[in-house]
Design a protein around this nucleic acid. Structure first.
Lengths: 100, 100
DNA sequence: CCTTGACATTAAGATTTCTTGATATATTGA
DNA sequence: TCAATATATCAAGAAATCTTAATGTCAAGG
């Protein structure tokens, strides 16, 4: 998993998206299913532009996708990304097994 | 997993440690088992103090542990941390399953 | 149209992180 | 004890990131 430079770059991006508390809390909210931005603004104590900034970070990393419905925009977790993290964890486990 | 503030803080730290390409490449090398710093300096094209900086970041996050042996210091992945990441991935999967 | 509401984008400053070069520490062997 | 080697730490600048406040955009209702 970490042999190919492209994978290293991709994983670094992914982990960076998850390396911020505000973004992790957003992810936490999205575990309950798709949410409109207004719900997230209420739930987290983050100002509007701050929330938007972090949603963009999550979206750029491919972790979430957005969907416009009238005036509202809904964000949801992208299930594909999970596989990438799982592959990484898998490769680490193999490595750990080999060495200990 | 992401309901408790302490977990959010811990995961953010952990993911931050994994959010850098140099550090991910170090982890990649450590998958083959414990390595002394000298091996890593050769394998990665990183200067000595730079490598030391990133090893400290990994160590502070609890991802690796170090062991001195004479002149050399050996670093190895900490297998405990894997469980934390796995728990996170597990919670995301449940969330994704619930919503789709 | 015009206004309002939901959200995105931009700009600027504060803070954090990373890199590099210099210096410090610790261990070994002469 | 001294020199050499391996690694850590420090200091300073560069670059990236985050926050806040202001402004832009777009859809809906009047």
């Amino acid at each position: 998993m970490l042999e190919r430079p492209a994978d290293v770059t991709r994983l670094a991006r992914l982990f960076h998206a998850l390396s911020d508390e505000t973004r992790l809390r957003i992810v936490g909210k999205l575990l309950g299913g798709e949410q409109c931005v207004c719900n997230l603004t209420d739930a987290l104590d983050a100002g509007q532009s701050r929330l938007s900034f972090h949603l963009k970070a999550l979206k750029d990393a491919g972790l979430v996708s957005d969907r416009r419905e009238g005036r509202w925009v809904h964000y949801a977790l992208n299930p594909d990304v999970l596989q990438e993290i799982k592959s990484f964890v898998g490769s680490v486990r193999e490595g750990a097994a080999r060495c200990c």
